[in-house]
Amino acid sequence: MTYRSAATGPLETYRRNVRRGLALVLSDRTTTTYLAIICGAFVLALVGPWIAPYEYNQTVYVDGRIHRLATPSLAHPLGTTWEGYDVLSRLLYGARPSVLTGVLGGGLIISVGLLVGVTAGWYGGNVDAALMRMTDVFYGVPLIPFAIVLVALLNIGFYTSIAVIGLLLWRNSARVLRAQVLQLKARPYVKAARATGAGNTRIVVRHVLPNIAPMAIMFFALGVGHSILIEASLSFLGIADPFVPSWGVMVRNAYNSGTMSRAWWWALPPGILIATLVVSFCMLGRKYGSMAGNEGNGTTY
């Protein structure tokens, strides 16, 4: 009855794969934890600015004087900064840019990586050689120095700096995905599909992409983690737009204020949040990759 139609539609296949992937992630306690942290970060990014008790740039006054570096209390669960801002509110505002950077950067990384990797692996020959030389060149680029020079000298904003990060970091995924496609090309079912007269697009969409999906998901997760990491690093160095309220900018302000020995509640929370989010994405990606059978391929990247 419905067996045939359920099994054959490409959409249905993808839906089934998503369900399986999710079941795989939820079958392990560590990956479930990471997924929960990530979902928490997404919720914060969505509702953070609404539930923040104070405005982002609202200076708190007590008896007409700025409430500087107040220790954590009920009114200010994470204390205040030197400028008298509420740390918790700033953290809640900061979730959105950080998560947005990760998702956009990771999306860009895996899009370019898939495009380059699959094209090179599938077409082979000169196309492959040219694309892989290009990837080699990107491997030689010293990441942070290059990003600093580009972002700072071109005076670029939030979204363009994400684009710079994404366009630098796709190199790992392209190389590994290409190798994966090369292996798939030699599989009997791909050859059979070709023998029946299926075109390139059809074989790639129906047979290649579903099979490299676990690896692509792994690189997407790693890409999200790395994008957040690089954005935070650039913000910390004072290179990225200081008016975007990201956690990296917060760490920088706290560090530069020279009050770290007195006000641990200012510098540590954003740093811990960045580290937790990056680690969650990277660990989830790698763990999922190894559970889906990519052991040894991507674990060293």
């Binding site: 990491l229 910390f236 770290m260 740093g271 990056v278």
Partner: peptide
């Protein structure tokens, strides 16, 4: 392996800040 990947994913400036906070400030 998990611990290694954890360390490898930490932002290096945060590692630095933690070390400063722990060993020189406190």
């Amino acid at each position: 392996l998990g611990a290694l990947i954890f360390v490898g994913s930490l932002p290096s400036f945060f590692v630095g800040i933690l070390l400063i906070a722990m060993f020189s400030m406190w």
